[in-house]
Design a binder for these strands. Structure first.
Lengths: 65, 65
DNA sequence: CCTTTACGTAAAGGTTACTTTACTTACGGA
DNA sequence: TCCGTAAGTAAAGTAACCTTTACGTAAAGG
């Protein structure tokens, strides 16, 4: 699952630490998400979309099968 | 996390078993999702949206905080 | 230099998504 | 009445998300 979290985060001028606080997750979670190490839960995906003021589909790009 | 899986499934004339095969998950997973017992992974949410030919936001409704 | 900030890795543990198996109930048709 | 189908519960196990803690590195500033 590819995503644009890092791009959107830096565009907002946020550090990983800032973002983790706003999303109420650990910094480790942000790092792992940005690195593509795992896919977020749907709940977290909704939180991220809300914070970035866009849709889940705008941030997350499932790899084509 | 509220969702419209059951409604959309029956609208397509599919049984829980049919749906589980198309999504490549177990029937238990379908039952639990429809019953709202847990939230799917983002990957599964994308699969569901693709099958129902709509967006994740059209199917899943996060409870307001 | 030394400190602070931002980003990164690694490992151990908890919680939850998801699987597998087995059993139950209700319904409709032959 | 019997059988098959669809939907449901329950329990035990595996996999993945997410946390916590600790440590490493590079850059910028004093």
């Amino acid at each position: 699952m590819n995503n644009l979290i890092k791009e959107m985060r830096t565009a907002m001028g946020l550090t990983q630490d800032d973002l983790s606080e706003r999303l109420e997750v650990s910094r480790q979670t942000i790092i792992s998400l940005e690195k593509g190490r795992y896919n977020p839960s749907l709940v977290l995906a909704f939180k991220i979309a809300k914070l970035f003021n866009c849709r889940i589909e705008d941030i997350f790009k499932p790899e084509e099968e």
